[in-house]
Amino acid sequence: MTALLQTKELTKQFAKDDVATVALRDFTLSIEEGSFVTVLGRSGCGKSTMLNLLAGLTEPSAGEVRYRDRRLTGPDTEIGYLTQSDTLMPWRGVLRNVEMPLEIRGVPAAERREVAAALVERVGLGGFGDHYPRELSGGMRRRASLARTLAGNPSTLLMDEPFGALDAQLRRELQEELLALVQDGGQTVVFVTHDIEEAILLGDRVVVLGGLGRILLDHPIELPRPRSADELRVDPVFVALHTELARTLKEAAR
């Protein structure tokens, strides 16, 4: 496999007055095309900083991000980013939110409406196309955000704890739907989470981050797909991996 997304000695610090806070230091990671990589780490380990850099939203203080072997200097429409918080435009209905990436790309109205309608249907929001974001529940907003991210037809998806704020039941459902969508679309995914189970359930490979984005563990997940959360919980491979990841995270705290 070829490396699609690479970081080389990436450092990011946030300056405030005369002091700079280092969020990420010498972070080097390489992500293969078509793989589903979950990044596991505790709060404040630089996960979101890493994703913002990978998305091209912020400039690294040192080092570089390479996408398809060219230097990433800004946001790229090939890379979709589903942020932790909802960034749906509150003055647009679901459909008009979903068609926004196409609108900016200059796709004719009739065509983008069609694509958006299909996607809204796809994420299970059929019949809610005209609703404003505030009229939707948290889970429905996540679905709408996911549909909007997919509308740009990115080949790479960055996801920052996308289901963190949802209840366990709903999270499970959306995880399954995400897997199905990615399986069909064949996108490369970088999925950040602090939930060990989620990391194992979704990923082909799990990367555990410690403080300042130090890579503590980089492990392939060789569990057969499709994976079911209920069956996995008693699978010895799952249990062993879970224990190892939990221990690594615990050590990182010290």
Partner: peptide, 28 residues
């Protein structure tokens, strides 16, 4: 909201898109 501005940048929008699709409606 910075998040909304970033969302448009991620969609490949330039300054003009940000102004027209986010800043104007948000400040309405």
């Amino acid at each position: 909201d910075r998040g909304l501005v970033d969302a448009v940048r991620l969609m490949g929008g330039n300054r003009w898109h940000v102004a027209r699709k986010v800043v104007v409606p948000a400040s309405m």
